[in-house]
Design a protein around this nucleic acid. Structure first.
Length: 639
RNA sequence: GCCCUUGUAGCUCAGCUGGUAGAGCAAUUGAUUUGUAAUCAAUAGGUCCGCGGUUCGAGUCCGUGCGGGGGCACCA
């Protein structure tokens, strides 16, 4: 007679075996209605599972993540059921729950159209209204394989064949007509799903995620406990679309792309200005931190890339060029070999270390066409790169200083929510294990010093050393991996780098690779999306527009602009023959942070009236005072 | 690279089943001289992404190439 312990410690005694649904009903009528799934001794189970022995039970509703997950999983099943009813001959494969929803991969010759999605949604709705019951069966392996083969589901049969022989195979029936191999658990009936779901997109997806395999059709859906949550989710998607840097970049006249050079940016004046502001800001920060800026060739002889190992390991992504005299050069996809050559020039002593060389190096990588995405994934980009040559003893201190610098820079730019990802030694690696120990310890110490949340990716490090990756979270909760700090125990030796140590012998230095944003281009994309185009004043590529109220004040407006420019602000004057309202709207749409209105009042008092973006408050200020105040706001917070 | 989808004026888009292109905004010109999110009017503006085919006739249909978008794979 089962003795059931509830999460609050309360115990329930039953005379005979009982199902989860009955337990829920016993606890309260409303819980009986809301119950979706349960856990028995911590393991998720279907509610109709018969409980015979003493155990602790927790009932989950749509308010629990576990409940929501089962809703999404059932929605995926019901979608597959709807698809197979509507399109006989379509084979099912897998259909897992993902963040915010689910997908299901199908094998079908004809493509699904967006009209099909509507039909499928309608059919799903019908199945939910019918409230078809779920039934679980345990099948014997051979029977399962031959059954799925017989009904033409070769993918399912293949899945079963790959499941370890000792594992139990369960098949879930939804109603009398449809079933699927599945680990479960599932809802007791389709009605429990509710209607807060939407099919969002169709796409291709390789069978088993392998690009050598055939392509299946994936239908994505989102699913929630309530209509309100679904609406909120859809709003979030819409918000992200509004912030799309490609759209905003066009509106703000920052950059464009064109066919002649897919994946390479044509920077317009304003975009390039933003770019240069970020560069000069980082230059200043790095200079304070003891970096020496260098610059190395973009095109280097093949032999260097062979020595560095890039030719073999990265060759497929490299642009190459054969000169008229038949020499083969490669356009650099990374800055490191060039930087090591700068180190190699001249004799280096232990007294020169740590030697921190920074480079805003433009690199080219031949990315697959399908990977390109606005500024976020390009074929030509500028790395805010640096290589630190140091001794093994200096690794820890240098790592600490790099993490400090990176976090300070992120903070200046408005990113305070940063997560670290640490990857340690992979199985296949170069270098002495003792040096690996030292490197890993150094990175971990640097990570702990930041007191930030971090994750450990076991064995995910590069073959040449462990690394930290810096992930920042933006204003709408999205994560972007930007900075990186990697220890390199390989390249300096490969390229023959050495320094003369105290004892007069030559030693190979350790090299740290480090990037702050990773790619300037990508970071600008992230900045635009984070701020929805409304960039902080100090990096704004057009900080103010001076607007005369009528052409009578053109001269005054011009003189104001001239003076502001002289004080270091980026300012334009709008002398177009349009009224004030028009100009305010025009410049607000292109996200100019500040408009300076000039009319008779301002001329008389030698002042400007400030109107800030997204505010209709007016503030009059003497020109002198304005210049004083804003020269200060024109700097990075930490400078 | 793969699957789906898409390409018309500077921008955003319309153009039904094939009959040599339209709108709004922007631009230009003129009028207006404006006090906090679109003043009025006129004018100009297009190899309908490229190439090939079907057809008496192609922006529209077919093939192919290139680019964009959404995914998948990739991101050393």
């Amino acid at each position: 007679m089962p003795n059931i312990t509830l999460p609050d410690g309360k115990k329930l005694n039953f005379e005979k075996s009982i199902t989860g649904t009955e337990v829920a009903e016993k606890i309260s009528k409303s819980l009986g209605k809301q119950a979706l799934v349960m856990s028995i001794n911590g393991e998720l189970k279907d509610l109709y599972t018969v409980i015979e022995n003493d155990c602790s039970i927790k009932i989950f509703t749509a308010k629990d993540p576990e409940g929501l997950e089962v809703i999404r999983h059932d929605t995926a099943h019901i979608m597959a059921m709807a698809v197979q009813e509507l399109y006989p001959g379509t084979q099912v494969t897998i259909g897992p729950v993902i963040e915010n929803g689910f997908y299901y991969d199908f094998a079908r010759k004809e493509p699904f159209t967006s009209d099909d999605l509507k039909k499928i949604e309608k059919k799903m709705s019908e199945i939910i209204d019918k409230d078809v019951k779920t039934r679980k069966e345990v099948w014997e392996r051979d029977k399962a394989i031959s059954h799925f083969k017989k009904i033409g589901e070769k993918y399912k049969a293949e899945i079963i064949e790959s499941i370890p022989k000792n594992e139990e195979l369960t098949v879930y029936h939804h109603g009398e007509t449809w079933h699927d191999l599945c680990r479960g658990p599932h809802l007791v009936s389709s009605g429990k799903i509710g209607k807060a779901f939407k099919l969002t997109k169709v796409s291709g997806a390789y069978w088993r995620g392998d690009s050598n395999n055939e392509m299946l059709q994936r239908i994505y859906g989102t699913g929630w406990a309530t209509q309100k949550e679904l609406d909120l989710y859809l709003q979030r998607i819409e918000e992200a679309e509004k912030r799309d840097h490609r759209k905003i970049g066009k509106e703000m006249d920052l950059f464009h792309f064109r066919e002649e050079s897919p994946g390479s940016v044509f920077w317009h004046q304003k975009g390039w200005n933003l770019f240069q502001k970020l560069v000069s800001y980082m230059r200043m920060k790095q200079d304070h931190d003891g970096y020496k800026e260098i610059n190395t060739p973009e095109i280097l002889d093949r032999s260097l890339w062979e020595k560095s190992g890039h030719w073999e390991k990265f060759g497929a992504n490299m642009y190459t060029s054969t000169t008229p005299d038949e020499k083969v050069f490669a356009i650099k996809p990374m800055n490191c070999p060039g930087c090591v050559q700068v180190f190699n020039q001249g004799l280096k002593s232990y007294r020169d270390l740590p030697l921190k060389m920074s480079e805003f190096g433009k690199v080219h990588r031949y990315e697959p066409s399908g990977a390109l995405h606005g500024l976020l994934r390009v074929r030509a980009f500028t790395q805010d790169d640096a290589h630190i040559f140091c001794t093994e003893e200096q690794i820890t201190e240098e790592c600490l200083s790099v993490t400090n610098l990176i976090l300070e820079i992120y903070k200046d730019l408005g990113f305070e929510d940063v997560i670290l990802k640490y990857s340690d030694r992979p199985d296949l690696r170069v270098g002495d294990d003792k040096v690996w120990d030292k490197s890993e310890a150094a990175l971990l110490e640097a990570i702990k010093a930041t007191k930030l949340e971090y994750s450990i990716n076991k064995g995910e490090g590069a073959f040449y050393g462990p690394k930290i990756e810096f992930v920042l979270r933006d204003a709408i909760g999205r994560d972007w991996q930007c900075g990186t700090l990697q220890v390199d125990l390989n390249l300096p030796g490969r390229l023959g780098a050495s320094f003369v140590d105290k004892d007069g012998t030559k030693k190979v230095p350790v090299m740290l690779h480090r990037a702050l944003f990773g790619s300037l281009e990508r970071f600008i994309g992230i900045l635009i999306e984070n701020y929805a185009g409304k960039l902080p004043f100090w990096i704004s590529p057009l900080q103010a527009v001076v607007i005369p109220i009528s052409s009578d004040f053109d001269e005054y407006a011009k003189s104001v602009a001239k003076e502001l420019k002289r004080s270091g602000l980026i300012v334009e004057v709008d002398l177009k023959n349009h009224n004030l309202n028009y100009k305010i709207r025009d410049h607000s749409l292109t996200k100019v942070p500040m408009l300076l209105i000039c009319g008779k009042k301002e001329v008389d008092s030698n002042s400007v009236t400030i109107r800030r973006l997204d505010s209709n408050k007016q503030e009059n200020m003497a020109l002198k005072e304005f210049i004083k105040k804003y020269a200060d706001l024109n700097k990075a917070p930490s400078i």
